[in-house]
Amino acid sequence: MKNEDDIDKPDKEKLEAAQQSALEDHEIIRKVLKGQVNAYRVLVDKYQRPVYNLLIRMIHDRDEARELTQVVFVKAYEALATVSGDHKFFSWVYRIAVNTALNYLKKQKNNVGIEYLKNVEDEREDTYDEREYQLQYAVNQLKEKYRAVIVLKYYEQLSYKEVAYSLQISEQKVRSRLFDARMQIKEILEKTPYFRTFE
């Protein structure tokens, strides 16, 4: 079995490209901070799609995700001076997006499940098979903090380190939450026909 660290380790080319991209981002940030506000457009263009898709996966509402994506980039702009040179702009913006989504979910706690089911029902014919739907349903039943690790680790395919940074918790905590999340998903799925199909 492949070691977890090996899975997380990007290859040399990817790493170089990421480093180059991070340098370009910081150059743009420098320009924006000097007053060239329009330069920020490049960062929005570059990262709006992953941020928007992360928000859809977190909150399951495209219209709200679109609105929140704008909020995330405005927040990021306002706090641009605090972005550390040690971190990639993308990771930093992701962190803002995760926080924004978690705050939104806390506010919507009582009705998001229903909304999600409604959306999934609409889409399931085209996109989801039965088991996929059951799994997504189970993920959506998780508390926000558990759902966040599942979305970031499996859907966004972030490394443990990146998940930890996004959620502002330790890597150890990420692993522990992932384990708990999978246990909870199993418990939920056991009440559905999910495993009957599997057996």
Binding site: Q48, Y52, N53, Q70, Y155
Partner: peptide
């Protein structure tokens, strides 16, 4: 979960931002 197909939705909010 690892195999889950994640749909990518396009978006353009640059002007609004």
């Amino acid at each position: 979960l690892e195999k889950t197909h994640v749909e990518e939705h396009p978006v353009d909010i640059t002007e609004e931002v």
